[in-house]
Amino acid sequence: MTTLLSPRDIETLSTYLDGQLTAFERTRLESRLQVELDLRAALEEMRRTRAILRSAPVLRAPRNYTIKPGMVKIRQQTPRAFPILRLTSALASLLFVLAFVGDLIGRNVPALVPVALVQEAAAPETAIMEAAIPTQQTLMQSKAPPPPAAESAMEPQPAQAATEIAVAPMLQMDMLTASPAPTQGTGELNLEAGEALRQATEVTPEQPVEQTEVEDQSEFRRETNVGWWSSLRIFEAITLICAVATGLAALFLRRKGNGT
């Protein structure tokens, strides 16, 4: 029996039967076979097993497997481009949906952005307009005859308010418009107020520059937004066309492949 033989011995015997051993290995095995009966028995069993296998009837093909043009044509009708087109269509559809949703969300954003920009741009403009009006009024009032001293003594608030104008123009404007008649006895205060107003009005020539810059920035932002949204729409159109075109092409190829 060959149960005690190692897998290496079995492999050597099998290879020996097929004549695939080297000369050295063959000589070595043959010398072992002369003395080891188990090895010789195993070789004989393997030889018979091999002979049985080689005696197995060789079957003839039940039919001819010759290829007809139609058989190959049918298989060639399933093009390799089909999965690529299908994947492209799916990706393009996904991108289109994302872009479309982004567009829908973004349509509300431009409505908010211009309002903020307009408010931002309008705020200094209003301040300038409001600051300019009391300045003119103050100048006109400084040319007018001074009010009675008693009145001015009784009402020092306009002068004090005028001194605060330089610090807070908005507050100044309110207060000046609320007190149109400064007192005559407060000439120094009026002068100080006039100086403060003059300083305040000195700012006005610079403000149109800032206003222009803000308007430029606002216009730039608007143009940027318009450019962005138009690019998004172009992207949407491209992805939509790509999705539809590749989808139709894949459908066409599939139907063609199915022979329908």
Partner: peptide, 13 residues
Amino acid sequence: VKSRLARARLRLR
């Protein structure tokens, strides 16, 4: 090939 063939023949036997 050698290894698989030897083991296959053993099992077939």
